[in-house]
Design a protein around this nucleic acid. Structure first.
Lengths: 124, 124
DNA sequence: CGGAATCCCTGACGATACTG
DNA sequence: CAGTATCGTCAGGGATTCCG
């Protein structure tokens, strides 16, 4: 199973590439947002899948592992049968969340106008 | 020449997927940031390439066109020889910029800690 | 100078099947 | 339940060439 690359080759210190580009893959922001929205301390794997119905099970696993690697998420395995695994946001993730939520709010406000522009551009 | 997809199939109204995921490709944020950083009204194509040396000419073109489609950037062609084309951020882009800059600042603050976590995770 | 067109390839991602 | 393993696809992206 793969994970995304560790560092950008040409600009190893570029915060946009090394930190933001990683958060900006297809699913990461959505997973963080969903974990927060749940309003609980911890969320089970299956529950996340229900909240994001069109993510594949593989990509949910990979995304969570990558988020764990970068310290946004903790993964807790309870030695039960059947197994129970819970994911929770870290303190770091909570300092990021206001910015993410601001972005989402901005996107919501501008969605209609942007989609309209996009449609126009598409017809040309 | 391709451009990224227009709408997300399953959640056509999801602001994260339709607006943010588009901004979060490999180059868009960096181009917006670079246009802003230049501190001018308009920036020429070649100049952008110099500022982002490892972007290919094709991807710079595609990224700029997509940003134009979504109304973040204007493209002005001057009928000269040799041709001159200038790109500028729109008002919409300027309302987005504070959020982007906040994210970049956050990434800078947390870069060392995140990279450290990432390295540890990598060794396991 | 600022592209467009073409070719090509990697890796991100999905689907499916299997497992402790 | 929460994964891992395997395989296949294809779109994102690079390199190169050509053009007004």
């Amino acid at each position: 199973m793969y994970r995304t690359t560790i560092e950008d080759a040409v600009f190893p210190n570029c915060p946009i590439r090394n930190i933001l580009a990683r958060l900006c893959d297809k699913w990461s922001l959505l997973v963080i947002y969903t974990l927060d929205k749940a309003g609980k301390e911890a969320v089970r794997f299956k529950e996340l899948q229900r909240e994001i119905p069109d993510i594949s099970q593989k990509m949910l696993t990979v995304t969570l592992r990558t988020l764990e690697d970068d310290g946004y998420v903790t993964r807790t395995v309870y030695p039960e049968v059947p197994p129970r695994v819970e994911y929770a946001l870290t303190a770091r993730a909570y300092t990021l969340l206001p910015h993410v939520n601001a972005l989402i709010a901005w996107a919501l406000e501008n969605r209609d106008a942007i989609m309209e522009d996009r449609r126009k551009a598409c017809k040309k």
